[in-house]
Design a protein around this nucleic acid. Sequence first.
DNA 1: TATTGTTATACTCTATAACTATA
DNA 2: TATAGTTATAGAGTATAACAATA
Lengths: 159, 159
Amino acid sequence: MASLPVVKQPPPRVGALLDHLSRRIRLRSESVLAPLGLRPRHLLALTVLRDLGGSSQQALARTLEMDGTNVVGLLNDLEADHLVERRRSPEDRRRHVVELTDAGAQWLAKAECALASVEDEVFAELDHDQRATLYSLLRQAMRDCPPSPAGCIAEPPSC
Amino acid sequence: MASLPVVKQPPPRVGALLDHLSRRIRLRSESVLAPLGLRPRHLLALTVLRDLGGSSQQALARTLEMDGTNVVGLLNDLEADHLVERRRSPEDRRRHVVELTDAGAQWLAKAECALASVEDEVFAELDHDQRATLYSLLRQAMRDCPPSPAGCIAEPPSC
DNA sequence: TATTGTTATACTCTATAACTATA
DNA sequence: TATAGTTATAGAGTATAACAATA
């Protein structure tokens, strides 16, 4: 076989850019969210819960692509602040049905408004239509999302 | 059409989506990179080093948005595997000029080929043009970023 | 026996502070 | 005094294993 010195350009890697940008947003989000008492992953969990409605902890873990054991601690935090509720499922008493409380929904809405400014800053170089395009591309990439096809992360409410 | 007060929705929040997708890529990249003996952040550092050429550790830390103390350990790993070299700067002997070795460049190329399949999987829902659009949008969002973050857009994997 | 949630634990990642050597 | 790099270390994030309750 011919071992041609293929020093062509490397393949298109979006991963590094994604990693970088999401790191930026996460770092800034932490500052913004700190006064509200929680961290980005709490927000992520609440967002998923709003989209999924009641869901078992394992389903939540799959959606978040987090280990189930860590979801326990995450929910402990949120439950301590009365932002979510755990109820035993009547059908299968091993399961906990996790649901957003009213307070949780309120907190989430407030946090999302606070985060809007973070994104305005991070995506300052993109105009409105470009941001919409970016959103729809990311959304499409997530289309095969593990448990619930529609339930990855839906459109946030406007503030 | 600008004469009418068109109610434009605020741009949707992409932070959660970005976080999610980058998490996916990172998790899958770890599996792919493990046989090669390193982790995603090692690859990220090598990529930045290739793009930046020789650079001080602090410049590297800023580009990676990592704490300088952690860059030390990262470089220790890479230097132990002879993938990078640290030389004292002749101009300012406090500085280390970090550079990719030939072995490092080779390893990086191999790793990138391996990662191409990860991205093909994660972005299976997007066609080539959409991936190119996504790349250019992310790239534009990073435009104010110091030097260039890791990543190149090119033809599909040639490996 | 298999599954859901939980605890305990270890391993990794990240950030803060103190030290060195240069400037 | 200030800066580049290093070390030590504590805190957060994450994963593995064992256990209780339930199916």
